[in-house]
């Protein structure tokens, strides 16, 4: 699947180990499934232990091969987590925008990663299930931050299941220097963007080509600390990842 989209151009390619963390049922596996297979399943079965998948992501001047470790979310599996995030260059910490508790859990994961994982790890905080929020509170591309905040604060109509205001999660992400997105694995909204942003944010120095291909320069590494509220553009990224 991932192979089929590759162009024959010999772009330098490097692999990036990425781990997904977050409470059970926030949609980690669904995000991966959307990213890798461009598919979504209602009532996705829980992940037991972990699953491993790969997907390529084509940037303008290089190819990133993500080695994705999707983990089980239930508390008791947490003891296995260090085996997954050891040596990871990137982490997607996921919460569910309809479950405040899941953001708290996500914050614990962030803290643990900052303490225990590789120092240069790129962390993205992802609020999933954005489709369950009423349209007004979903940050549309091009909205400036104030607009989003105003919307998030607005009186909730009954179709809006959002419990975590964008503003709150975003402020936290900014403070900790995390990438930040609100996604929907169901609609595909911003899913590819998260991975593309991570690919951009991986510092050159930590890229090791799988077969000894050295890193190229060109990509800004300063992306790493910047908060990206809404993705660069509409869904269906042009350069983006193979999905």
């Amino acid at each position: 699947m991932a192979e089929s989209t590759g162009t024959p151009t010999p772009r330098p390619s490097s692999s990036v180990k990425l781990v997904l963390l977050g409470e059970a049922a926030v949609g980690k596996s669904s995000l991966v499934m959307r990213f890798v297979n461009n598919d979504f399943q209602e009532n996705k079965e829980p992940t037991i232990g972990a699953a491993f998948l790969t997907q390529k992501c084509n940037l303008p001047n290089r190819t990133i091969k993500f080695e994705i470790w999707d983990t089980a979310g239930q508390e008791r599996f947490a003891s296995l987590a260090p085996m997954y995030y050891r040596n990871a260059q990137a982490a997607l910490v996921v919460y569910d925008i309809t479950k405040p508790q899941s953001l708290t859990k996500a914050q614990h994961w962030v803290a643990e990663l900052q303490r225990q994982a590789s120092p240069g790890i790129v962390i993205a905080l992802v609020g999933n299930k954005a489709d369950l929020a009423s349209p007004g509170s979903f940050p549309a591309p091009g909205d400036d931050a104030d607009g989003v905040e105003a919307n998030a604060d607005a009186e909730q109509d009954e179709s809006d299941a959002r419990k975590v205001p964008t503003r709150e999660a975003k402020a936290y992400a900014e403070e900790e220097g995390l990438l930040f997105y609100e996604t929907s694995a169901k609609t595909g909204q911003y899913v590819a963007e998260v991975f593309t942003a991570i690919a951009h944010a991986i510092p050159e120095s930590s890229l090791k080509g799988p077969r000894g291909v050295g890193g190229q320069t060109n990509l800004g590494r300063d992306d790493g600390a910047r908060v990206n509220l809404a993705g660069p553009r509409e869904t269906g990224p042009k350069e983006g990842c193979a999905c």
């Binding site: 049922a25 209602e42 009532n43 996705k44 079965e45 369950l132 419990k163 169901k186």
Partner: peptide, 28 residues
């Protein structure tokens, strides 16, 4: 949380008639 995520593809575990999901069943 996991109840509906158990063998979603097995006929016995599927909601009986093809319920027309007017209200989204996967919400909170």
């Amino acid at each position: 949380r996991d109840l509906h995520r158990t063998f979603p593809d097995n006929i016995s575990f599927k909601p009986d008639p093809p319920t027309t999901p007017l209200s989204s069943p996967e919400s909170s």
